[in-house]
């Protein structure tokens, strides 16, 4: 596959499909790569892989727990990349991690290692516009799409710059807060989705607090799709097997397709 993450997602969106990107913390269980396959088989349009970090500032209890578990099991960036290189899935894989893991070697080496293993996107939530320059250059040089976050608190000028500099898609935060399941859809999410859609033709995906199929479908309708993380990781930590996680992703897929334009 030589298409970029962005080209892949735009092509799918342009068929009228709402995009679905489920998340798994790499290394959370010994057979975590089975989960990636299950997601892909269940109709994911891309899969987000969390590279666990000891101090995940933007994550709520569920992903903290998944990260701690993966680290305790000896998960390393090198180990994850070796396993990723053996994966055979037909949708793009996106790494999500914190700056500290990115700066261990040079950002150029980090990005090169990701692309060498077949990853096509990268999300670094603690690297905002003012700090992202070097990483953005390194990612661009490697053909790796660096996805930027947009928040309900971002000014219009910042949203414009974020939509211009983000690659792959724009990650719209549904709320001010950490990852984790939540009840209702905040008004600010709807507003942010509308504003971002007005600024860019890049796909806009909502993330943070997407908790169930109905909610996913409603939110996705305000943009181009959703990222689902904590709801899946909660099930996994409670003992769900890859096939059950796949079934759940399939149920979200159906809800999105039902609500598609």
């Amino acid at each position: 596959m030589t298409e970029s993450l962005e080209e892949f997602l735009i092509a799918r969106r342009d068929t009228g499909r709402l995009l679905l990107v489920p998340y798994v913390t790499a290394g959370v269980t010994p057979g975590w790569t089975d989960i990636v396959h299950a997601y892909a088989d269940a109709g994911a349009d891309a899969v987000e892989l969390g590279f666990p970090f000891s101090d995940p500032m933007l994550d709520g209890v569920t992903i903290q727990e998944a990260s701690d578990r993966a680290i305790a099991a000896g998960t390393t960036v090198k180990g994850i990349l070796e396993e990723v290189a053996t994966l055979d899935v037909d949708v793009p894989l996106i790494a999500m991690t914190y700056s500290n893991l990115v700066v261990q070697q040079s950002t150029a080496e980090f990005c090169a290692a990701l692309t060498a293993s077949g990853l096509r996107g990268l999300i670094v939530p603690d690297s905002p516009l003012e700090e992202v320059g070097e990483l953005a250059d390194a990612a661009a040089a490697e053909g790796l799409d660096l996805v930027l976050l947009a928040a309900p608190s971002s000014s219009r000028a910042r949203l414009r710059e974020i939509t211009e500099r983000s690659r792959g898609f724009v990650y719209a935060l549904t709320r001010m807060g950490t990852t984790g399941e939540r009840g209702e859809i905040p008004e600010q999410a709807v507003r942010l989705g509308r504003e971002l859609k007005g600024l860019t033709d890049r796909p806009v995906l909502f993330g943070f607090g997407v908790s169930n199929p109905a909610q996913a479908a409603e939110l996705a309708g305000h943009a181009d799709g959703v990222v689902v993380a904590s709801a899946l990781m909660r099930k996994l930590l409670d003992g769900a097997r890859p096939r059950e996680l796949g079934d759940y992703v399939a149920s979200i897929r159906r809800a999105l397709d039902h609500g598609a334009r």
Binding site: L58, D126, S127, L129, S153, R158
Partner: peptide
């Protein structure tokens, strides 16, 4: 404005906290 001391410091926080 950048808050850097040599190569150290900066503002490595999520976008949500930047306005604050």
């Amino acid at each position: 404005a950048t808050g850097r001391f040599g190569t150290y410091g900066g503002r490595h926080v999520p976008e949500s906290l930047i306005p604050a």
